[in-house]
C-alpha cells in the first residue's frame, strides 16, 4: 500500500469476468465435457479395481479354506481351489474378471455360486432406498433452514442452526444410529430397532424400517448441507456486488436472498452434494450392519469375511462407480444450469 491517492486504472478487459469462477470448464461444450470426464473415469476405475485385487490378495486365506472349514485336508482345499479357479495367478484372475466386467458380467459368487448381478439386484434397492431417503430429506430440510439462518446472520435461527450443525458434524453415524435406536426403538418403542421390510409388504411398514437408518445417515448430512449453504449464502450476501445491485434496485431482503444469492449458491451446493454422494454410500456399510439391512454394505462385510472376492470386487466397483457418476452428473448439471458454462464465457 504505497500510493496514497492513486487507484491503478485497470482496463476492464485485462481483469476478465471473474476468471476464477468462470474458469471451471471455460468454453467447452457439454458433450466434450462428458467425454472428457468419462475418459478420466476409466483410469480411475481401473486403478480402483487393480488396487482391490491387490489388497484382497494380501488377505490370508481364501474362499476354499473358508468354505471347507478348519478341518479340511490340504488336498481337499487344493481341489476346490482348482474348481473355483483360485489356483491361477492373480494377474490372470484379474484379467479374466476385467474381461467379464467390461461386458457387464461381474461373475458369480465364489461362495454361493449365485451370479453377482442377481445378488446386486436384490441388494442395491435396499442401499439405494436408504441413501435416497437420507439424501432427499436432508437436502429438502437443509435449504429452508439455511435460508432462515442466512437471512439474519448471528440471529436466533442462525445460532441454533450453528450449534445443531456443529454437533451433528461431530457425531459418528454409528453412535447416532445407536442413540436413535435407544430413544425411538428401545425407550419409546415407536420404530423397529432392526430389520428390513421390503416394499412389497406395504409402503408404511417399509418406511418404518427405513426411518432410523436413513436418519442416522441423513442427520449429519443435513447439518453439513445446512452449514455449507448458510456459509455460502452469507458470503454471497456480504461480498458479492450483484447483491448490492439488487438491493439498490429496491428488491426486498428475502427476494435478494432467494432469487439472487441462493441462485448463485446453488452451484456450490450441487458440487458439494456430488462430492458427498460417494462418501455417503460408503457410510452405509456400518449402518446396514447395525440395523441388519440386506444392502450392499452388509453384502460387502459378509463377502470379506468369507473371502468371496468376486463379490467384494463388485461392491467396490459399485461404490467407485457411484462416486465417479455423481461427479459426472454434477459437471453436467453445471453445464446445463450455469449460463457461464452453457454459453462458454467470453
Amino acid at each position: 500500500m504505497t500510493a496514497t491517492a492513486t487507484t491503478p486504472r485497470v482496463p476492464a478487459d485485462s481483469r476478465g469476468p471473474r476468471a476464477s469462477r468462470v474458469g471451471r470448464v471455460t468454453g467447452s461444450p457439454v458433450l466434450r465435457l462428458v467425454v472428457k470426464r468419462l475418459l478420466m473415469a476409466i483410469p480411475i476405475m481401473l486403478g480402483v479395481t487393480v488396487l482391490t485385487f491387490w489388497v484382497l490378495s494380501l488377505i490370508p486365506g481364501n474362499a476354499a479354506q473358508q468354505l471347507l472349514g478348519p478341518e479340511a485336508t490340504p488336498e481337499d482345499i487344493a481341489l476346490l481351489e482348482q474348481q473355483l479357479g483360485l489356483d491361477k495367478p492373480g494377474v490372470v484372475r484379474y484379467l479374466e474378471w476385467l474381461q467379464g466386467a467390461v461386458t457387464g458380467d461381474l461373475g458369480q459368487s465364489i461362495v454361493s455360486r449365485q451370479p453377482v448381478s442377481e445378488i446386486l439386484s436384490q441388494r442395491l434397492p435396499v442401499t439405494g432406498e436408504i441413501v435416497l431417503l437420507a439424501f432427499v430429506v436432508s437436502l429438502v430440510l437443509a435449504i429452508p433452514v439455511a435460508l432462515l439462518a442466512a437471512h439474519k446472520p448471528d440471529g436466533v435461527m442462525d445460532r441454533i442452526s450453528m450449534v445443531v450443525s456443529t454437533l451433528g458434524l461431530s457425531v459418528a453415524n454409528y453412535v447416532l444410529a445407536l442413540l436413535l435406536v435407544l430413544v425411538f426403538a428401545v425407550t419409546l418403542g415407536w420404530l423397529p430397532a432392526i430389520g428390513f421390510v421390503p416394499l412389497e409388504d406395504g409402503l408404511w411398514p417399509n418406511l418404518r424400517s427405513m426411518i432410523l437408518p436413513s436418519a442416522a445417515i441423513g442427520l449429519p448430512l443435513f447439518c453439513f448441507y445446512t452449514r455449507f449453504l448458510r456459509g455460502d449464502l452469507v458470503d454471497q450476501m456480504q461480498q458479492e456486488e450483484y447483491v448490492t445491485t439488487a438491493r439498490a434496485k429496491g428488491v426486498g431482503s428475502w427476494s435478494v436472498l432467494i432469487k439472487h444469492a441462493f441462485r448463485n449458491s446453488s452451484f456450490g451446493l450441487i458440487t458439494i452434494v456430488g462430492l458427498n454422494l460417494g462418501a455417503l454410500i460408503g457410510g452405509t456399510v456400518i449402518i446396514e450392519q447395525i440395523f441388519a439391512l440386506p444392502g450392499i454394505g452388509q453384502m460387502l462385510l459378509q463377502a470379506i469375511n468369507t473371502r468371496d472376492f468376486v463379490v467384494v470386487q463388485a461392491a467396490v466397483v459399485i461404490f467407485a462407480l457411484v462416486a465417479v457418476l455423481a461427479n459426472l452428473i454434477v459437471d453436467l448439471l453445471y453445464a446445463v444450469l450455469d449460463p457461464r458454462i452453457r454459453y462458454g464465457s467470453s
Binding site: R15, P17, R18, E241, Y242, T244, F267, D338
Partner: peptide, 15 residues
C-alpha cells in the same frame, strides 16, 4: 438509483 464501479461483478451472473 446507483451504478457501481465494477460492471463485471455488479450484475447477477446467473440471470
Amino acid at each position: 438509483a446507483m451504478v457501481f464501479q465494477d460492471p463485471a461483478r455488479s450484475l447477477n451472473p446467473t440471470m
